[in-house]
Design a protein around this nucleic acid. Structure first.
Lengths: 331, 331
DNA sequence: GACTTTCATGCAACCGGTTGCATGTCAAGT
DNA sequence: ACTTGACATGCAACCGGTTGCATGAAAGTC
């Protein structure tokens, strides 16, 4: 049985140092208001007693708790960990702590988490939110909010423009001689999915390619694998998948059907989360999720400082990373 | 410019309902103490005003904030996201929020995070902590603590016994005719690394195999890739890597040296985090990180309820998952 | 009908800090 | 020597809830 040391309060330090509670408080928050000797005496007493300011009490009187919330749809999706990591690092630089929420791609859960976080964070970052615009606007009215990969006017947002990379992907396939390609789509309420689909459509028509959309519902390995039947039925010679996870599923599914990649079929992923750690490497569209995470947090912290909200819209461009899963069409 | 709605307090609700503040408080926390009519009246008033209890104020007076902290060494390592996800899900079931900390494998950062979290969480889960036993004990004296993959007597812990799976891996290689194998080790202050190394040594001697340790320092793709020179120099015909990330690096490095897997070299990973999403699948030792995360949190919540700490030690067994990177030795 | 018990509610102190304002001290200004 | 101002510190209210105890009314007991 371990015993806990109970908290030392500001009053005890005040008594020990022979000053008022307010002076102890000021010694920690605005030492310039006190004479150097007093500060030193207080600090010494605090040190001796092992005093640590109570975060909760401070939060109650100042209204600032030094926490921000980060909500993502699926931590297990390798797109998010780098984003989370960068966000946490950036928050740390300003002594902020991060509340992490995982919504399992479920808008209801997302709403619930926002509500639960609301009382204890100063601001919120919603990454790839699956909520409706209305709900997001409603939340933004309650507390400072920054969006990642969601484009809502009036709310600060950081967008990873996979459009640029996807256009390069289509062009790459066109140059390799592919005339008919498939887009294996992702979650229907995903902003990125819409963006990628649109970019592929536009680029394909520019290069006079035929394009077919095969839905994969979720961004996952199994969704990709299940889509293989439809992909082969389409008669396409190449596919671009919503993300790398889906692409890996497609890869496995194709292999089960004895379709060899890249020899008889070319495949491109998105987000480049697996290409660098798997072999053979997947040709993929670069991802800048870590930059997005960092940027979103620094934006949020800035908002908290200024107490002002500018309608900012950062766009991060992407590009194609060519590896081993694409080659020229057979024909 | 968006305007925020300022908070409704308990006093406003009390006025509106014509009762004392304490009654409003009780209506929310112990409604059985009040007459049903009063509760209803208060609830109606609260509803009308849009009252939401202030989490911080409540935490200050009760000492319970309903938060727990989870600290991991590297979010980007695919071993952890499932653990985090499961932990968060379990916490959510009891209306607890999770503070997430990432230490970048740095003990200093870990200490700092523990300190920062200490004031605002009721308990802490340290996953694969890189701290010394002393530091961990010191922290455990301050607040309820549960460890994952760290075996310190007197502190509740959840251990993933990769030993069982690793023994199977060695046996598998022995049966395939490999006589000389390499263990590509991980971080030196990792409990899992020690455990795996020991298990491999013991099992190898049991099967009369020669074993060489090649260090990879960090658990990462690049470490694995850099280890390939030493691996080939050892003259071994098979390798077991500290984790799947390292294994993928080894895979890539071998391929660059024109050593084909599994034809001329067999490779086994650990944690099974990539095998299921990559192709060809990596033979690996199963991981139960999600169960570990869930278990650790439910253990912690139980401790918070009971205010008692039993010296529990949960062990989760693992097993070998055979996929495509192992086959019989050439000889 | 007087006396105890039960129950619903209010009062006020408390959780542990922060902060506007008042007070007292000491040095500079004239 | 007297005023003025700057500066250091203390007082007390406040942040928004929770909770032990007191109170008073209704119900139960003999």
């Amino acid at each position: 049985m371990i015993k806990r040391t109970k908290g030392v309060t500001i009053s005890q330090v005040a008594d020990a140092a022979g000053v008022a509670r307010s002076s102890v408080s000021r010694a920690f928050t605005r030492p310039d208001m006190l004479s150097p000797e007093t500060v030193e005496r207080i600090m010494k007493a605090a040190e001796a007693l092992g005093y640590v300011p109570n975060h909760t009490a401070r939060a109650l009187s100042t209204g600032r708790h030094g926490n921000i919330g980060l909500i993502v749809p699926d931590i297990a999706n390798p797109f998010f960990p780098p984003l989370i990591q960068a966000a946490q690092l950036e928050a740390d630089r300003s002594d902020f702590c991060i509340f992490l929420g995982n919504t399992e791609e479920n808008p209801k859960q997302e709403d619930k988490l926002v509500g639960r976080f609301a009382g204890q964070v100063e601001g919120l970052v919603l990454a790839s939110s699956r909520l409706t615009d209305e709900r997001i606007r409603a939340h933004a009215a309650q507390l400072p909010l920054v969006l990642i990969n969601r484009d809502i006017e009036g709310i600060p947002r950081v967008l990873i423009d996979s459009g640029s990379g996807v256009r390069q992907a289509v062009e790459h396939l066109a140059k390799l001689g592919h005339r008919r390609i498939v887009y294996v789509s992702g979650p229907s309420n995903s902003w990125s999915n819409k963006q990628r689909r649109t970019a592929i459509r536009t680029a394909a028509s520019k290069f006079n390619m035929e394009i077919e959309i095969v839905p994969a519902v979720l961004a996952s390995y199994n969704s990709g694998r299940n889509a293989v039947g439809a992909i082969l039925a389409s008669g396409a010679t190449a596919a671009i998948a919503f993300d790398d996870l889906t692409a890996q599923g497609v890869l496995a599914g194709l292999s089960e059907q004895n379709v060899s990649v890249p020899v008889s079929f070319s495949l491109i992923g998105c987000d480049d989360v697996l290409g660098a750690v798997t072999y053979p490497g997947l040709t993929s569209v670069s991802n800048r999720s870590n930059e997005a995470g960092k940027l979103a947090v620094s934006l949020l912290l800035e908002m908290l400082d200024n107490r002002s909200i500018r309608d900012v819209r950062y766009v991060l461009e992407t590009h194609l990373v060519i590896r081993g899963t694409t080659t020229s069409a057979l024909g």
